[in-house]
Each structure stands twice: as structure tokens, then as C-alpha cells.
């Protein structure tokens, strides 16, 4: 009897978890779930997240070219007299600004943002897949539920991506300042 009771309790808990997880909506005070940012029952959100992380990662990896450019630029500011490294007199003129050094840099993250925009449209078309759940979504009395379910995930991804890129930009600027000879600091 006790074992049966435990099984029933377990089933009930599984049910509740499933409802929370699959309905894509969590109530106030409940643990936030990433699924809540996607259309109800949308099963590809993990692949979508992985795709976005991959594209952002690829953009970041390619942005590491910054260090190569910086190294070459700093090297060009010096002359070698014998074994001694001497700062060139015209070093300030030869200096490439941080903006110049990172120009076109973050363009490599464009595929990431494009991917998320496409995903927002994909979420909308999800409501036409297998059934016409779009009819239910368009009948909901609350305003903006349909739009929010399509764009919330991609917007969150974009915000997270923008934050990561912003932090990287700051980090790169710090490195840029550290790498410049004292006489060349802006």
C-alpha cells in the first residue's frame, strides 16, 4: 500500500513537472524555465539555443584576430637598434585607433543575429505545423501573447549576445590600452 502511495505521489509530481515544462508557462514564484520563452510545446528550443551559441562562439573566435592586428601594430611602433627595441619618433602618427583596429570585427556576429531573427519567424510558423494552433493563439484574450511567444526567446538571445559582445569589447579595449607604449596612450 505504502509503495503504491509513493508511486502515485511520484506520478503526480511527474505530471506537475511535465505541465510546467511543456506548457511553456510558469506561474509567479515558480522556477523560471527557458521553455517559457518559446511557443507552447516547442520542442526544438535546445537545438536553437545550441545553434545560437555556436554562431556567437564562431563570431567570438574570429574576433580573436584582434590580437594579431594589435601585435602587428605594436611591433610596427618600434625600431630595433641592435638588440634594443626603441619607440619610433613618429609612433603616435603610426598608431591605429581602437576603433580602426576592431573595424568590421563584430560583423562576424551578424549571422548570430540573423539566425535569431529567422527563428522568430520560425516560431510563428510553428503554429501552422501539424495543427492550426494559430487559431487558438489568435483567440487569446490577453494582448501580445502570440507575438511574445515568437520573439521572447530570440530577443533574450540577442540581449545575451549583445551583453557578451559588449563585455568582450571592453576587455579588448583594456588589452589595447595595456599593449600601447606609454607615450602613445590616447
Amino acid at each position: 500500500m505504502k509503495a503504491q502511495g509513493r508511486m502515485e505521489e511520484k506520478n503526480r509530481m511527474e505530471d506537475n513537472n511535465e505541465i510546467r515544462e511543456r506548457s511553456g508557462h510558469v506561474g509567479r514564484g515558480k522556477l523560471w524555465k527557458p521553455e517559457s520563452c518559446f511557443p507552447p510545446g516547442y520542442e526544438h528550443w535546445e537545438q536553437e539555443r545550441n545553434g545560437a551559441v555556436f554562431l556567437l562562439g564562431a563570431g567570438i573566435v574570429l574576433s580573436l584576430r584582434f590580437f594579431g592586428r594589435l601585435y602587428r601594430m605594436v611591433k610596427s611602433l618600434y625600431l630595433y637598434v641592435g638588440q634594443e627595441r626603441v619607440l619610433r619618433e613618429d609612433a603616435r602618427e603610426m598608431l591605429i585607433s581602437f576603433r580602426g583596429l576592431t573595424q568590421g570585427h563584430w560583423g562576424l556576429c551578424v549571422p548570430f543575429f540573423l539566425f535569431l531573427i529567422i527563428m522568430a519567424f520560425w516560431h510563428y510558423f510553428y503554429y501552422f505545423h501539424r495543427t492550426k494552433s494559430i487559431y487558438l493563439m489568435r483567440r487569446l484574450p490577453a494582448r501580445g501573447v502570440l507575438a511574445a511567444s515568437c520573439i521572447r526567446g530570440p530577443l533574450l538571445g540577442m540581449a545575451a549576445g549583445a551583453a557578451v559582445l559588449g563585455l568582450l569589447q571592453l576587455l579588448y579595449y583594456e588589452v589595447y590600452l595595456l599593449a600601447l607604449p606609454k607615450g602613445c596612450l590616447p
Binding site: D15, E18, I19, R22, S23, H25, P39, P40, G41, Y42, E43, H129, R130, T131, K132, S133, I134, Y135, L136, R139, L140, P141, A142, V145
Partner: peptide, 30 residues
Amino acid sequence: ISRLSFATCEHSFFPNLTPEAHREFYKLHF
């Protein structure tokens, strides 16, 4: 609009969700 409901042969439910999840969804919105 919540005074109108619709059942269609094209189906308007979410195929990946269980009936229980639908109940929660409906209770949340209606």
C-alpha cells in the same frame, strides 16, 4: 473574444503538449 470558442477539423491544439498541459494553458488564459 473569450465568449467564443472554436473546434475545427484542422485542430487548434498544440500537438506536442499533453491534455493536462492544455488544461493549464486554458486556465491561464480563459
